[in-house]
Design a protein around this nucleic acid. Sequence first.
DNA 1: GCCTGAATAGTACCA
DNA 2: ACTGGTACTATTCAGGCG
Length: 787
Amino acid sequence: MEFPLWLLDIGHDVADGFSEIRLWGIDDQGRRLMLVDRNFRPYFYLVPTDERGAEQLTAEIKGKRQSHPGIADVVVHETRFFGRPLCVVRIVCEEAANFSECVESMAKAEGVKEHLEDDLRPSYRYLLDNGLEPCGWHQVKNGKEVSRPGLRIDGIYELETAPIRVEKHIAPSLRMLSFTTVRLGGKGTPKPKTDPVVVISIATNEGEKKQFVTENRDDRQIIEEFGSYIQSFDPDLVVGYGSNTVEWPYLVERAKIHGLKLAVGRAGAEPHRSLYGHISVEGRANIDLADLAEGMPEVKVKTLWNFLGFLGVSVKEEVRLIEDFEIQKFWASIEARGELLEFAQEYASKILEAAKATMDFVMQLSSLTGMPLDYVIAAAVGFRVDSYLMRQAKRLGELIPRRFEQPYIPYRGAIVLEPKPGIHKKIAVLDFTSMYPNLMILHNISPDTLIQPESIDVEYTTIPEVGHRFRKEPPGFYKAVLSNLISVREDVKKKMAGLDPNSTEYGVLKEREKAIKVITNATYGYAGWVGARWYVREVAESTAALGRATLLKVIEMAKDMGIEIVYGDTDSIFVKYEPEAVEKLLLRTRQGLSMDVKIDKIYEPVIFTEAKKRYAGLLPNGKLDVVGLEAIRGDWANIAKTVQESVLELVLKDRSERRALEYVWKTASDVRAKKVPLREFIIWKTLTKPVGEYEARSAHVEVAKKLLSEGWDLAVGEKVSFVITKKPGKLFEKAQPYSLVTLDDIDAEYYVNSQIVPAAMRVLSVLGVSDAQLNSKEKLPSLSDFA
DNA sequence: GCCTGAATAGTACCA
DNA sequence: ACTGGTACTATTCAGGCG
């Protein structure tokens, strides 16, 4: 039988003694299918020593075949490695089960210099070799229908040949289920050993909302019901917020305690931990949106509510946010419990909405990088690029290097100009589009074009300052990959231009374009990451050096043309906006440097302090754009951030330092008079290592210790919230979890003197306001006359 | 032992 | 768990003083 298939999940397993690849997907009729391919044989490569050669090594291995029983085939393979032709030996194994043993024994064999591509998982190997694309469409040929009892699936097919990819990016309609749990602890974070799950809330994209609640702390039944519900609804996507770290491990352990099997996979498997710390649910995509929020720097504290705020998803006003430390209190009384249940239900519904708002992008990222949907969301940027490059290496006939420990040697990065402090009007920000990727393309900067000092054979480019040399021809790996990314992105943009912006296809293409951009822009950083498969320090170092040279040249040109420069950072310069002169500069730069520059934005006024990387300006639409300053930092109290933002608005829009000052005074007096709610004083800081490893004592660490001792779980990477109280002593002694204090405990003087005033003065001091002026209202009559 | 300025630790930002 | 460049606060350290 022949039919199209959209690929959702891929797995590898051994059934009836046969190693099999399982593809899970959906056809054009909406049938959920499992395809089984038993023809897969894992393999890897041996690089022979120079003396030995591939032919001889092959012959030797074949001769000693009896001593390597797991080997199905040994063949000489002509390929390339880091751009150079290389003749290697491909060792094909009988079974995936004894693959690693096979690798180990062969790697030690005589005449073997290196072993390659043995570090790919079978399912990934299969995707790669057959050009399959997760979240992409394929044509299945010669599928033979078979039956296996007990599977939640509309059909099972055995494959003779792998499906063939077809270009199409619109996903079928997927069944989505979101869920959350309420766990009832004794003291601190609930522990699965002793504390039950009391509520499991579910929402589906077919409009169903459901809640499993236990009245008596016995969660056996609700866990069973949850499992059955999943099986009967049979979702393609199971979405949670924190589900990889909290809900799934918790539910699995609770189930185990009751002797239950949480068989939620499509072939009856339990959720299990997989790559990148994520949890796999067989045949479905298990998505933890907290992983996605992790990669969004705009979302400072990674709560679902903040994530929703960033996505523009609204929350029911009447539903009160209930935090972990309040759960017991809410559970205890009958009325409050109703509120808790309502909250849990809303939480599940909002997870679903967040998923709807973000899944198109994640699917595009998945199809672009070749990582299965559930992996790509959990994987760090470096691994996404890695995966993308591995696919490209396959396309270009290159072997995939292994990842190995190597020394880290830092190198010089970008240039940042001294800003001219003060307020400037009409400033244009000119920046190079995709500067690093384009420099890499322009100068053919790549791991395989780098010339070793001893061998100079061809035409090359010498990089200024650092002296590294790169072959001009042929195009290197990075050049090939990056030009491809850029041209595909252009194609996508062109296609979008001819479409209705409200159409599904337009939306999909927009997300695809975003995904391409993310990967393109991450490539330079990837090149300088020691964990990268294609890590070569000289590549990153040279790119940065070219970036510096490029920026310096534009600065030179601008100066020659008499254009005033007020600031610049890495790939941008901020210049006085005189349209004709600036247009001319753009033109000259494009011609002179073969790099595209454009006006990124215009600040009607912009204010700089003496510090680099910190400024704020007004855009033509009147929007305040704050960069680097406290107002946008996650580790300042809200009250200080709001004050700074207002000061900026008053100074830039109203041009009134007087009103700005008055605003600061008013706020300070409100703070002292306890007229400001407690939450405005909360400060958040990330715990970057285990509490025991800190050398200095600091507020967030002391608070973390306290919470830990009270039984609360705090993982490295989490943000700790605290407020500064009137307790005497050092700051770290004054800090308390905000859940334990009231407004009366707040140290108003700290917030005024160390939060509000510094944040306000950061801006006001540029305009000549002194601390003394800010502190004493009387001495300020003349300031109001701002001409 | 107290005070002060310099050095260090720690965090979050920009591009 | 993509890079280097940067600002900034609070703690800690080192040295002067008495």
